[in-house]
Amino acid sequence: MTSNNLPKAGYTLAKIALGGAVLVGLGMATMAYAQTKPLQTVERVELDKYLGVWYEVARKPLYFQNKCDRDVTATYTLNENGNVVVDNRCYTKEGKLTQSIGEAFIQNAPFNSKLKVSFLPEAIRWLPFGRGDYWVLKLDENYQTVLVGEPRRKYMWVLSRSPQPDQAVVNEYLEYAKTLGYDLGDVIHTKQTIK
């Protein structure tokens, strides 16, 4: 290589480095935009179709689910005041069944896509604090798979009516979560031993 080619090679390397920096910057800007853009829910949830048993197939880590090792389910039923009873169950590594009973309060009736969930003791559950957001972000028309999250994009769940859903469908819902600004680097794929 002659000395005449050195500046040209350096110029080419600088262009490559600049191009890489621009791509990284665009990627970060896109992620930042997705995380600051208001989180969109589905248009409407028909509660009578949504009620029943759902199997968790993926989630972002959540402190109160740390003990859950496998067979995580959520069962939803209506109570006498029109709110939704939430019955969450899972098995620990030691094989012990754990259960948490809560109540979900609809925030945007009649659309029913935004709820607040409380696991406080029933006697004080009416208090507005201690409630977490439960937003329905993607739901198929047959109510077989759902993506649930919250506006800060810290927590997220993919639930299915089947304990062993088609992995392609699960991946579709996870990819959709990614487009909403969720970081999928720490997603847990729930073990379901139920057939």
Rank of each mutant, 00 (worst) to 15 (best):
T2L: 02
S3K: 14
N5E: 15
K8H: 06
A9K: 09
Y11Q: 13
Y11K: 12
Y11A: 14
T12I: 15
L13I: 11
L13P: 10
A14G: 13
A17E: 05
G19L: 13
V22M: 13
L23N: 10
L26E: 01
G27A: 15
G27D: 13
G27F: 11
A29T: 01
A32R: 07
A32N: 13
A34Y: 05
Q35M: 09
T36D: 11
T36W: 00
K37T: 06
K37S: 12
K37N: 14
P38K: 10
L39Q: 09
V42N: 06
V42M: 11
E46C: 00
E46V: 09
D48M: 06
Y50G: 07
Y50Q: 08
Y50K: 03
V53M: 14
V53F: 04
Y55V: 03
E56W: 01
V57L: 12
V57Y: 07
V57R: 00
R59W: 00
R59T: 02
K60S: 13
P61W: 12
F64V: 05
N66K: 10
N66C: 02
K67R: 13
R70Y: 07
A74H: 02
A74F: 04
T77N: 15
L78A: 13
E80K: 01
N83P: 01
N83S: 12
V84F: 02
V85T: 07
V85F: 00
D87I: 03
D87A: 01
N88S: 11
R89T: 09
C90F: 03
C90L: 07
Y91N: 08
T92M: 08
E94M: 12
T98E: 15
I101Q: 10
G102P: 04
G102F: 02
A104E: 09
N108V: 01
P110A: 04
P110C: 12
N112E: 10
K114V: 04
K114L: 04
L115Q: 07
K116I: 04
V117H: 05
L120I: 00
A123Y: 06
A123R: 09
A123L: 02
I124F: 11
W126R: 11
L127S: 11
L127K: 01
P128S: 08
P128R: 01
G130A: 09
G130N: 08
R131H: 05
R131F: 06
Y134P: 01
W135N: 02
V136F: 04
V136M: 07
L137D: 07
L137H: 03
L139Q: 11
L139F: 03
D140N: 13
N142P: 00
Y143L: 09
Y143G: 13
Q144C: 10
T145L: 06
V146P: 00
L147F: 04
E150H: 08
E150I: 01
E150A: 10
E150C: 08
P151T: 03
R152D: 14
R152F: 09
V158N: 04
S160G: 11
S160R: 03
S162E: 09
Q167S: 14
A168Y: 05
N171Q: 15
Y176S: 12
K178G: 07
T179I: 05
L180W: 00
Y182D: 05
D183F: 03
D183I: 02
D183L: 06
L184F: 00
G185M: 07
G185S: 13
V187L: 08
I188P: 00
T190W: 02
T193I: 05
I194A: 14
I194T: 14
K195A: 15
K195Q: 14
